[in-house]
């Protein structure tokens, strides 16, 4: 069995009386793409927010390669190599694509507390920015202001910014949400490509994409883990069918 890169122990988060995350203990292995499924409000985004340091857990622990990162803030989590993309597009609307990715790429300097030399002379940051734009498919759109792009392109940029930080572990919160079918296919291909060299934790409602990319799946309901297994196991699980897959097919 391969090495566990990220692990949670009895993770809980409540908002007032609402249990958004309930006793979640999961292990994510290096190199394995781990999909997280669940109906709306199941607590998927909350889980990602806990892992990325955006929220502090009410109780429980998070370990990244044996480091306890339970209390780490999102900047620290990013710096140790965990990147995340947001479900609700979270970009710098007035910046161009290039500038959006630049902020991500520049964050890998040992410090940006540099006051004298113009940033544009930083070759390494340039390279990372260009690479991120290339990967997310926006190389041609580099000088377009983010707010003037289509929603789908903004979603691509969302991923590009994360990639610019060159993370080892990627937390992807519904990367395909709101994309057209053509863009969706492109990004699914990108995810497959990224999965070769990275560890991915992927929340996605698009089942085709999940089944195409993920190796393992966890189904969440009401903040708790319902079942975890490989793709075939989850597809055939009756509990999962009832709780999630079944109901979403009914809805469709």
């Amino acid at each position: 069995m391969s090495e566990v890169i990220l692990r949670t122990e009895g993770l809980c988060k409540h908002f007032g009386g609402l249990q958004a995350t309930h006793e979640v203990s999961l292990s994510f292995e290096r190199g394995v793409t781990h999909g997280i499924l669940g109906p709306n409000g199941a607590g998927k985004t909350t889980l990602i927010n806990l892992l990325s340091g955006e929220l502090a857990p009410s109780s429980g622990k998070i370990f990244f390669k044996d480091y306890d990162i339970t209390q780490a803030t999102s900047d620290k989590v990013s710096r140790i190599g965990i990147g995340r993309s947001f479900q609700k597009t979270n970009i710098f609307a007035d910046f161009t694509c290039f500038q959006n990715c630049w902020v991500g790429a520049q964050s890998r300097l040992s410090s940006s507390m540099r006051f004298i030399r113009p940033a544009r002379h930083l070759r390494e940051v340039h390279r990372r920015t260009d690479r991120a734009l290339q990967l997310c498919g926006l190389a041609e759109r580099r000088n377009i202001q983010a707010s003037s792009m289509s929603y789908g392109e903004q979603r691509q940029l969302e991923i590009g910014m994360m990639l610019a930080t060159e993370p080892e572990l990627l937390l992807l919160d519904e990367p395909l949400a709101g994309m057209g079918s053509e863009e969706s296919l492109k990004i699914t291909e990108l995810l497959k490509e990224l999965a070769k060299e990275h560890t991915l934790i992927l929340i996605e409602h698009d089942m085709d994409a999940v089944f195409a990319v993920a190796d393992r799946l966890t189904v969440m309901v009401n903040g708790a883990e319902l079942e975890t297994g490989d793709v075939a196991q989850i597809r055939n699980s009756t509990a999962v069918q009832e709780a999630y897959l079944g109901s979403s097919e009914d809805a469709a």
């Binding site: 990325s52 900047d75 990013s78 507390m113 006051f115 113009p118």
Partner: peptide
């Protein structure tokens, strides 16, 4: 000069979207 340097890029981004800058790995408060 300061605004063209790496520091300037960070503070301008902070003004635009502070929480995203933090999520990208910058200790924003500093």
């Amino acid at each position: 000069m300061i605004l063209k340097a790496p520091f300037g890029h960070v503070i301008v981004a902070i003004k635009a979207n502070e929480s995203r800058v933090r999520a990208l790995g910058y200790p924003v408060q500093r």
